[in-house]
Design a protein around this nucleic acid. Sequence first.
DNA 1: CAGCATCCTCTGTGATACTG
DNA 2: CAGTATCACAGAGGATGCTG
Lengths: 114, 114
Amino acid sequence: MPRIRHKSFECNAGCPVEGTLNLIDGKWKGVILYHLFEKTLRFNELRRRLPDITQRMLTKQLRELEKNNLIIRTVYPVIPPKVEYSLSELGRSLEPVIAALKTWGDRYLSSNEV
Amino acid sequence: MPRIRHKSFECNAGCPVEGTLNLIDGKWKGVILYHLFEKTLRFNELRRRLPDITQRMLTKQLRELEKNNLIIRTVYPVIPPKVEYSLSELGRSLEPVIAALKTWGDRYLSSNEV
DNA sequence: CAGCATCCTCTGTGATACTG
DNA sequence: CAGTATCACAGAGGATGCTG
């Protein structure tokens, strides 16, 4: 779950910014979304693309993204289990936002990593 | 300090996204930047605009923003103390990014707050 | 394959009090 | 005015093992 930041009265103007940040905050959300922008992926396909994430974390982040209606989780009742993750309309609408973050990062972060 | 997320090898494509996120992550960074986009502000002026932030937190977030070269801290050697915070060139370059976050939030977060 | 259950660590955030 | 110093805590993030 993303951190709860402020209530509306505290951030007259900056609040939507924080609200959006809340949704994509979380150590792996950005990268997960980034890969889903490309295509729908299964659980283990995502794992392979994020070599250092643990199963627990991947599950958690996916559940949060799902809860925030950014991604859609489709379970196929087959054996072995098959679960696909894809972007919702809302999630897809984040693409320009993520793109803005990426563009800025590409341009200004080259050697300035924290 | 923002969380350290991944090393570069883990996020071939999504890393700049996370890197940028690291800089503006932190419960109050977004709002602080938002107010500084408008004008240079003194410590207590910022406090007044962020009614619920504690002194300790405001100081911490400002120090992190400064450390990341997003804002400039100017100390006037007078009594009583006077310290002004303004955006650096780098900080100002974040404006379109913050704007993207705000635009998205305004459009999609109306009743969807987490 | 795609998880869940446990246990643990760390750090971001906050409350409170004091100071040059 | 603009901080610093302590203390405290919830929860983000991680390691490991088990399962339908």
